[in-house]
Amino acid sequence: MKHLEKDKFQPSRPWLAPLIGAFCGVLYGLLDFYLDHPGTGAPSYIHLIHELFDVFLPIALGIAVGLGINLILKNIRFNQYLSMKNSQLSRSVFTSTLISYIIHELRNPIHNLSAALENNPPDLTKEQESVVHKNLKRLESITTQWANLSVLYDTINPKETVLLKEWFQRFFNDKVSNQLREMNIQYSQIMCPAEVYIHPTLLEQICVTLFSNAIQELGQQKTNRVLTLTIDQNKEASEFIEIKLTNPGSFPDEVIKSQGKQVVNSRKGLGLGLVIVQKTLTQIGGSLQLFNTSDSAVVKICIPGALV
């Protein structure tokens, strides 16, 4: 990237104005010398002009000096602004290159995982299993690999306070409502006013996965496409807010039994999306639970928070 150069903004002949000023000064000096010399016999109007110059020139000189100082200050400020812009641009180029590389580092293992798990095979071969484990490790190592760079940036507080009602309204309008309409799913929500301590980006990732899974599941049902969201304080531990997503149907027994294990195959346990959700929630002190009631499948997540 070509940086802005201050030379471009500087006047092309900075010596011209002082030179003209000096020339005028010499002319005035000569006039002064001519009038002060006895016997020159200068006409009276020349004397009048000379007197006028004597009055106005110091004033003009003062104004010129003032303007000059002002111009110099302006130039300094402008140079500071340019140098600040330059460093901002360099930083933004560096950041976007860095983000591009991090995405590259993330996408490769995800690509390998999706290749190994494509078509959701009921049993993984040894090779597939080794690919899965190797690439999950690669994903995990990315955090440590790039952690040192965090000092360059403002740190994100993973336990930022989010007001759930407002946040959900926005999230629902942006990400969910269209999908529900397309799939003809009836949606209802029961929401207690609460705040949770999680970064909004993490919460969004979690909710996107939960809603996508539920919508995908409901899309396979011909009737009874109903989805319910409930937000309330956790009965067992009041320092947690629980978010429950309920839809008709049931989880396979293998999925219920495999919770807590890192199994990335949605027929035998948690799919990759839910493994990531579980991991994220564990890191902020929350939890993920999947269970069946008499007629529904329920995904319950607990996030540290409080009623407001």
């Binding site: 490769n108 690509h111 390998n112 290749a115 190994a116 090779e127 597939q128």
Partner: peptide, 9 residues
């Protein structure tokens, strides 16, 4: 060069 997916495909 990332051989996992390449070999599967």
């Amino acid at each position: 060069d990332d051989i996992d997916a390449r070999d599967i495909f």
